[in-house]
Write a protein that binds this DNA or RNA. Structure first.
Length: 1066
RNA sequence: GCCCGGGUGGCGGAAUUGGUAUACGCGACAGACUUAAAAUCUGUUUCUCGCAAGGGAUUGUGGGUUCGAGUCCCACUCCGGGCACCA
């Protein structure tokens, strides 16, 4: 027998597989298709580290197993090669990024081939290849030439857009441009001063650049944007149709951040009162835009005309997108740019202000309004603001704050009142103050809020700080459960009550009631009824005296608000519907005491409880809350409950109230139902060289003109210097002969767009190109798309959940709307791998110097050892530290397999031991199921158990060994192929049929029956698996060990679990 | 603060969904082989009391349900990830 020499055999078989193309996927095979996918790598100069391989290997195992199970498997690979790292390296080494990319791909290919994955290399793609990015540009132009048809709820060609008749040529163009799914907007974007590039919202992490960590700045630039927000709702809804890890779904849903509520319109009133028309004369839906602001992307407060043309007729439950949230803005963008930059600031009359709220039911509790410091209304109200200097100063301060400062939750709230100006609460016509504060974001909703301090934490904090009115309009409702549940057959009684917290005269102890004397399990403070004409304090004092017996006390303070409760009171045999007015905190002054009347104390015992024990002693919700307030201060109640102080809406439950008031607002033209999203449109321009050129020509006369399909690809011109510029202009802008061209429409002088696309562009559709990677006529043929799509299994990192995964779903839906693909979702199943940490438990990184290089591991132990270890180290989805010593265990496992070839006899099952056969079938079952469920670690462990079993035998059969090798082959393709061929097999092991198990043979015939006494294991016996209950009990009780425990004791019960145990209860 | 995960030996981790907790691997210890070491092979290895037979404890903490809980329920705590003044 030769020594196991992985270096030799692995290279040999890799060449052989390459030559014979055994992993090639067939288009239109008779077999069932299976398309599995990993996120294609970015070929960086650093090369692969062991962490990158984890998902490649895992999906490779699935691909191999599926292939052996008779599927036509496509497992493709390619390169996501545009982007900054390559460009930066190119600049540093003065090498063309094309060359850098080529070299990196060469190196990556070598590395990848060295661990033996079963990729179909014939479909290899490269996003920087003009033949590829021709289609990226083509899709971009499709977006440019489409609009979102709200009626049909899908994208359509722009030629179907309804254009208002009365527009002149320029207005018409602007109208169309403002409806394109790829559109230009001048806006404040996130700018990384170090990378010198604009960032998408998703690329900003904690206010810093995701890539380099530099603090992102705001920069106002004209940007290409993609209207992903139009797909927000579908991107949430269609998650129901796919199988993604739950955490991926919730992350996407949270990121899109849908909230339903209402837009409410408030009237603004200045002191002189001349600028405020009667609101009754207004119609809510009437356009009220600023006629002098030309921009269609301007805030809809100024411009409603676009919306009005897009009115959607939807089902009753579907609200239109919030008006205050038109899609032109990016998440970090200043909505009011045109005004804020002073481009268009006419001194107009502004008579209303809209806010978005998810709690229209709290409108009666709105005691002030807050505008974000950037709100344009301020500028137009200047003449009425009495403290203008102060206000301007505040705006200036806010402007100079970084995003990080502004969003720091730990800091105290700041703000300034607009003196001389008031808002009118439309529900009750009350005049309320208007404040400016940077806790209100310009980029969400309408940039203004109605403040309800009693029911919102932020408003509460602000109101407390500035002494603003806090008005409770929602009362919490506590409903008894269990014993305390309302009983239908009992009488209902209504009472008005107060909680009374009584403090001891010298100790830090509190008077509590234990109701166990009556039929209740309550533990509370003193609860007292408020009698007619009595104040809460008076009632509290009276009850405190009656129930506790103490006589000298004083009211310290009243805390809490109104709360309702509904429960059954067993001691009175009635249902109670209490209105708790508040809680009164009382301190005893001395021990003066008169024995309370029997009547007062027959249901409960009074107990003094130490301060630190009170929290655990009390078991009713309201007193618990009152105690918390006494200890930690008042808090707003933000939950749902019952309306109070809300006039005709009083006593409505919150969710019902919301519906009713929204209807009321709509009927009175004061507001309407609205939906808001946190998701912003996708900033699509990058001011860099190494990306797809945006195929647009800019003509002074004709505006933005799309290139024709025949002019694609628009190739990147060669350029001497690809350094980014500080001006924010792309390096392409400097190449005059490329930039200056004739307008394709009017032939006058025009310029090319010089920004490029982000590297998320190429990756947003690459999985479609694999299907037909050589097609010159289409991005892929419809027939092939139909055959292969959707992707059956897609694996990728969690870090791409709100980036690539969301973007590519968006593009796919767009292509679906236009009829280019036949599924609305691209990926059927999405899974995610865990990170491999360095041996020190930290993230692997070059700077920490703790990176494990797969090349070295392969060199020393072989690819099969590496592959096995990466799968064995722990659950696939978990982050696990690398351990070289554990890796050695996998090498030992392979050595053992190698040596076992000597034990293989030629006879088939003749000498097979019954136990081994059972074990074999159990293993087939386990491995088959585990691979399907991505439980590779336990699959390998069961293969080890089988090997250990085989190893105990003198001889093993050819068939046993073969089945073992076949099962191992997806994990360790090289050694299994070598051993397989050694036994005179002609065809590759990777083309063999996956073994099937026999359920009968996998069953044990003998089991270990466990005998327990009171749930504790006391004895075990070998018995036939199908032993009857009676038989088992008889044997169990007859055992000496068991007799020892049962002697002299009464046997209460014997439990029998088939095939498992007998439990004797004594 | 909110939303997801998770806490099991010295370490990575198993546990058929309520039925023998600690599979499998690493490490450690002892033995065999060897002049010796490495490699390999054999055995031991959750903790604890005990010479032993045997007992006791144990799945982050505290309670509960159950004949029986790592698994279910309640409260707390710690760790990881995501979001974060989103009205």
């Amino acid at each position: 027998m030769q020594k196991y020499n992985p270096q030799k055999i692995e290279k040999k078989w890799q060449k052989e597989w390459d030559k014979s193309e055994i992993y090639k996927a067939e288009d239109f095979s008779e077999k069932k298709k299976f398309y599995c996918l990993i996120e294609f790598p970015y070929p960086s100069g650093a090369g692969l580290h062991v962490g990158h391989l984890r998902s490649h290997i895992a999906i490779d195992i699935i691909a191999r197993k599926k292939r052996m199970s008779g599927y036509n498997v496509m497992y493709p690979i390619g390169w996501d090669a545009f982007g900054l790292p390559t460009e930066n390296f190119a600049i540093k080494t003065k090498t063309h990024p094309k060359i850098v990319t080529e070299n990196n791909i060469k190196n990556f290919t070598k590395q990848i081939k060295s661990y033996g994955p079963s990729f179909d290399w014939s479909r290899e793609i490269n996003t920087t290849d003009p033949k590829y990015y021709k289609w990226t540009q083509w899709i971009f132009l499709k977006l440019f030439n489409s609009f979102y048809d709200e009626k049909l709820d899908k994208a359509r060609d722009i030629k179907y857009l309804d254009i208002p008749k009365n527009l002149n040529a320029l207005e018409k163009r602007e109208f169309i441009d403002s409806h394109r799914l790829a559109y230009e907007a001048e806006m404040a974007i996130n700018w990384c001063p170090s990378c010198k590039i604009g960032l998408a919202n998703e690329e900003v992490v904690n206010g810093t650049c995701e890539r380099c960590g530099a603090l992102a700045e705001k920069k106002i630039m004209k940007q290409w944007m993609l209207r992903i927000t139009k797909y927000a709702d579908r991107l949430i809804k269609d998650l129901d149709t796919v199988d993604y890890l739950n955490k991926i779904k919730t992350q996407q849903v949270n990121w899109i951040g849908k909230s339903e509520g209402a837009i409410v319109k408030f009237q603004i009133k200045t002191d002189d009162n001349i600028k405020t028309p009667e609101h009754s004369s207004e119609v809510f839906n009437e356009p009220e835009g600023n006629p002098r602001c030309r921009s269609k992307t301007c805030h809809p407060i100024y411009n409603n005309s676009i919306n009005d043309n897009e009115k959607v007729v939807k089902s009753k439950n579907d609200a239109e997108p919030a008006e205050g949230f038109e899609p032109s803005d990016n998440r970090m963008t200043n909505l009011y740019l045109h005004h804020a930059t002073g481009k268009s600031t006419p001194n107009l009359l502004y008579h209303s202000l809209k806010v978005f709220t998810t709690r229209p039911d709290t409108l009666f509790g709105c005691t002030y309004m807050v505008l974000s410091p950037e709100h344009p209304l301020i500028k137009n109200l200047e003449s009425g603001i009495l403290n203008l200097e102060e206000v301007k100063k505040y705006i200036e301060q806010a402007k100079n704050k970084s995003d990080l400062d502004r969003t720091d939750l730990a800091k105290e709230k700041t703000g300034v009142e607009l003196k001389g100006i008031k808002a009118i609460n439309p529900i009750n016509n009350e005049e309320i103050p208007i404040w400016l504060a940077d806790y209100v974001l310009a980029s969400y909703g309408t940039g203004a809020i109605m403040a309800v301090p009693a029911h919102d934490e932020r408003d509460f904090e602000f109101a407390k700080k500035f002494g603003l009115e806090i008005k409770q309009v929602v009362a919490p409702l506590f409903i008894g459960e269990g014993k305390n549940k309302i009983r239908k057959d009992k009488k209902n009684t209504k009472r008005t009550v107060v909680d009374v917290i009584i403090k001891h005269w010298e100790k830090d102890e509190y008077f509590c009631l234990d109701w166990s004397k009556s039929k209740n399990d309550w533990k509370s403070f003193v609860v007292g009824g408020v009698e007619k004409g009595e104040s809460e304090e008076e009632a509290a004092l009276r009850e405190a005296k009656e129930e506790s017996g103490y006589q000298n006390m004083r009211v310290v303070k009243k805390i809490g608000g109104i709360a309702y409760s509904r429960f059954f009171a067993a001691h009175k045999d009635v249902n109670r519907r209490d209105i708790k007015r508040s809680c009164v905190y009382i301190e005893l002054l001395n021990s003066s005491f008169i024995e309370p009347k029997e009547e007062e104390v027959k249901n409960h015992n009074g107990i003094w409880v130490k301060k630190e024990k009170v929290k655990d002693f009390i078991n009713l919700q309201e007193p618990k809350i009152h105690w918390d307030i006494l200890q930690n201060g008042e808090k707003p109640f933000i939950g749902y409950g019952i309306a109070i102080n809300s006039e005709q809406f009083n006593n409505l439950e919150t969710s019902e109230f919301k519906i009713k008031i929204t209807k009321w607002l709509e009927e009175n033209n004061l507001g309407k139902k609205a939906i808001n999203y946190k998701l912003r449109d996708w900033v699509f321009s990058r001011q860099h060289y190494w990306g797809e050129p945006i195929p647009i020509v800019k003509c002074e006369k004709c505006g933005n003109i799309a290139l024709e399909k025949k002019d694609l690809p628009l190739e990147l011109p060669d350029v001497k210097n690809y350094e980014p510029t500080d001006t924010g202009k792309s390096p392409l802008a400097k190449i005059d002969q490329w930039v200056n061209i004739k307008c394709p429409k009017c032939n006058s002088n025009a310029k090319r767009e010089t920004d490029t696309m982000p590297n998320w562009a190429g990756s947003s559709w690459y999985f479609l190109r694999y299907i037909d990677s050589k097609n010159n006529k289409e991005f892929a043929s419809p027939e092939k798309l139909k055959y292969w799509m959707p992707v059956d299994l897609y694996n990728g990192g969690m870090e791409h959940t709100t980036l690539h995964l969301l973007y590519s779903r968006f593009w796919h839906k767009f292509l679906y709307d236009l009829g280019y693909v036949n599924t609305s979702e691209p990926y059927k199943i999405r899974r995610s791998h865990g990170m491999i940490l360095a041996e020190d438990g930290q993230k692997m990184s070059k700077s920490r110097g703790n990176v494990v290089n797969p090349d070295e591991v392969i060199e020393k132990y072989g690819a099969d050892t590496l592959r096995l270890y990466e799968m064995f180290m722990g659950p696939y989805g978990d982050a696990i530290p690398w351990s070289t010593s554990s890796l050695i265990g996998m090498n030992r496992f392979l050595e053992k397999i190698w040596k076992m070839q000597n034990k293989v006899g030629t006879q088939n099952f003749v000498s097979a031991n019954k136990n081994i056969e059972t074990l074999l079938h159990q293993t087939i079952k386990k491995v088959t199921e585990d691979i399907e469920n991505l439980k590779f670690n336990t699959a390998i462990s069961s293969l080890m158990i089988l090997l250990n079993g085989l190893d105990k035998k003198e001889k093993i059969s050819n068939i046993q060994y073969s089945i073992f090798l076949i099962m191992l082959s997806p994990f360790a393709p090289h050694i299994t192929e070598e051993l397989w061929k050694m036994f005179e097999n002609k065809e590759s092991i990777h083309l063999q049929k996956w073994p099937e198990y026999n359920e009968k043979l996998a069953e044990e015939t003998e089991i270990t029956l466990v005998i327990q006494i009171n749930g504790k294991v006391r004895d075990q016996i070998e018995v036939p698996a199908d032993i009857s209950e009676e038989e088992a009990k008889k044997i169990a009780l007859g055992r000496d060990k068991i007799k020892k425990w049962t002697e002299g004791k009464e046997m209460r019960k014997i439990i029998f679990v088939k095939g498992k145990l007998v439990n004797v209860v004594v």
